[in-house]
Design a protein around this nucleic acid. Structure first.
Length: 598
RNA sequence: CGGAGCGUAGCGCAGCCUGGUAGCGCGCCUGGUUUGGGACCAGGAUGUCGGAGGUUCGAAUCCUCUCGCUCCGACCA
């Protein structure tokens, strides 16, 4: 076929050319032989989790530096799919898309106070005039600046601006590929309202939009109550995709909708009174038994008969002793919130020796000269074991009030699976989760410091009530792979699959096979199906292996065997059944299968 | 930032201890034979051995410094 390229234009899946005879010719690009899909048999040594391994093996991403990746064509298609779903749902919820700069002037960040507060995670740099900038890790400052300059009346509210943009956070430890990168794509939205009531509505709209987004992405997730963290604000939810490799621990109730990050999860306070003391305080020798497990095993008692005494150091130079049941873990955030000091850390060994007179591992509340606070659950205990503030010794038969006094009881421990639900009679289940989305109600923190105000209907100037809402786009793709794979590779859910159908031209040298494949491929493109044609001159085995690895939901095999009967084979990546389709109607059938799965 | 480890071909690794021609598997290129679950034969290309300095007749190998990367911890929308 001879033609001159007179004029060309790019479309999604083909190049449109006009031939010498003024005929339109489409050149399709989605041929495996011409596509860039550098699959690997082995996974790189530094890939720890499945999604990172598979994204590398399929050539979806290439690492450029620590936590910084190039999105390769195949990976970008999945990213774009997620972005489109996000965009769609944000628009549906009434948010308006904009795009803010990656380079942020220091000025704005100084105004909000975060230039000082943000720390090393904020990547700072100077331009040629020595003016300071940072790479935007989030955009409260910039968006607040936009709004204060353009929104003056309550009539313009509510307003919700969002963008899908590359962020940069100089993470201490980037890891797990796209899961925790330094440069990453994020959708961030910011809502502005005049009244609390409408601000809550804006929040609720985003919450619902997020549910729809992650449902459409085919993810198994939980929306959990979360700590609002350093960003500040009154309440917040995290959207957690359930996956073993998740960096967060969450609990959810088996009886009601309650779910929370363990950092936040409330503990139900039991009103059962402690049994009366039956033993007297007795010092026992526990040579070299320091940890709870060691002491429990040595004394042949369960860990929940022990009380651990943690010595913590606060920013006010004060040491505080924290008592917890032996099998419970301290929740540092709850402690931090309770003490209200700038920071709280575990005391250095030397400080512990100074405070208790014994090496770490033998601290106890009896005769201790520092403030003692205790977790609520300690109140239900009697005749327990504690450290004796003396090397190689513990007390047994310890009891509250009689042997020592606790200044304050509070919820200080981490929730664990099996705890009672704080809202109903159910039990909490434990999961690992990947945080793919986070919604915050911010309040007036930024609008007040940066002067984002409008006049209300009384002509009074009022600070705007803000909310901010993030979704990690790349992380969502990675989380989906964590959840959808088997030992052979990825199993894409249809809505975010880079391609919907893979046509495997089994033996390209066989004319009948080649022609039938080309025909099916062209028909699918005409029907708007996203199709990749594996036209490589590879052996069938290699094609099947790659097909499984890259995980396109529907695989159509065109081989000499089926073609004799005028048929092609359909296999869903997720299943094991093979269905024969008539070549003549295959494209239409595939189109309807794809449509049904979206 | 503390602890541990790794930088040798596109990827996975050996060689280093005990200094002397830079190797293996996969991938890649050529030719041939193959073709329904990662084929086979023959031939071939590819390396500033992370960088700088030092010791030595001679350094991938020993020493010093440096850069990068990974893992564990603390930290974190």
């Amino acid at each position: 076929m001879l033609f001159n390229l007179i004029q060309g234009s790019f479309h999604a899946d083909f190049l449109l050319l006009i031939s010498r005879t003024n005929q339109l010719i489409r050149i399709y690009f989605m041929r495996y032989s011409q596509y860039l899909l550098p699959t690997l048999k082995e996974s790189p040594a530094d890939a720890e989790i499945v999604s990172h391994q598979l994204m590398t093996r399929t050539g979806m991403v290439r690492k450029v530096a620590a936590g910084i990746y190039s999105y390769m064509p195949f990976g970008l298609r999945a990213i774009r799919k997620v972005e489109q779903i996000v965009r769609d749902e944000m628009n549906r919820a009434g948010a308006i898309e904009c795009l803010m700069p990656m380079a942020n002037p220091a000025e704005l960040w100084q105004e909000s106070g975060r230039w000082e507060k943000y720390g090393k995670e904020l990547l700072r740099f100077k331009d040629r005039k020595e003016t300071e900038f940072c790479m935007g890790p989030t955009h409260e400052e910039v968006v607040t600046d936009i709004v204060r300059n353009t929104v003056n009346s309550y009539r313009q509210l509510p307003l919700n601006l969002y963008q899908i943009q590359t962020k940069f956070r100089d993470e201490i430890r980037p890891r797990f590929g796209l899961m925790r990168g330094r440069e990453f794509i994020m959708k961030d939205a910011y809502s502005f309202d005049l009244e609390e009531e409408s601000a809550d509505k804006s929040y609720e709209k985003m919450y619902q939009a997020y549910r729809r987004i992650f449902e459409r992405c085919g993810l198994n997730f939980r929306a959990v109550e979360a700590d609002s963290g350093a960003i500040g604000g009154s309440f917040s939810h995290e959207f957690m995709v359930l996956a073993e490799s998740g960096e967060d621990a969450i609990v959810s109730c088996d009886g009601c909708q309650y779910a929370a990050n363990v950092e936040k999860a409330e503990i139900r306070v039991s009103d059962a009174p402690a049994p009366d003391p039956a033993q007297s305080l007795e010092k026992v020798s526990t040579p070299n038994q320091k940890t709870i497990d060691e002491v429990a095993a040595f004394l042949k008692l369960p860990a929940n008969k022990l009380v651990k005494t943690l010595i913590v150091q606060t920013s006010t130079e004060e040491l505080v002793a924290v008592l917890l049941r032996g099998d419970h873990e301290l929740n540092a955030i709850k402690l931090h919130n309770l003490l209200g000091t700038e920071w709280v850390v575990m005391a250095e060994d030397a400080e512990v020796v100074k405070a208790t007179g014994a090496p770490t591992g033998f601290a106890g509340p009896v005769g201790l000269g520092v403030r003692i606070i205790a977790d609520n659950d300690v109140r239900q205990m009697s005749d327990f074991v504690i450290g004796a503030n003396e090397q190689d010794a513990h007390y047994t038969g310890a009891n509250l009030d009689r042997d020592f006094v606790v200044e304050k009881f509070a919820d200080l421990r981490q929730a664990v699976a099996g705890d009672s639900c704080p809202r109903c009679d159910g039990k909490l289940e434990g999961w690992r989760g990947v945080e793919v989305g986070h919604v915050f109600k911010l309040g007036t923190k930024y609008s007040e410091t940066m002067g984002a105000t409008v006049l209300d209907d009384q002509g009074k100037s009022r600070a705007l009530i803000m909310g901010c809402y993030g979704i990690g786009i790349g992380r969502t793709v990675a989380a989906s792979i964590e959840q959808n794979h088997d030992e052979n590779g990825i199993i894409w859910p249809m809505p975010i699959a880079p391609f919907q159908v893979l046509v495997a031209m089994l033996t390209p040298k066989d004319d009948a096979v080649r022609e039938a494949s080309e025909k099916l491929y062209a028909e699918l493109l005409e029907l708007g199906v996203e199709v990749l044609l594996d036209d490589r001159n590879e052996r069938p085995g290699a094609k099947f292996k790659d097909a499984d690895l890259i995980g396109i939901p529907l695989r159509v095999t065109v081989g000499a065997r089926g073609l004799k009967e005028g048929q092609v084979e359909l296999k869903a990546r997720a299943g094991s059944d093979i269905e024969m389709l008539a070549l003549e109607t295959a494209a239409a059938s595939l189109k309807s299968i794809v449509a049904a799965a979206l």
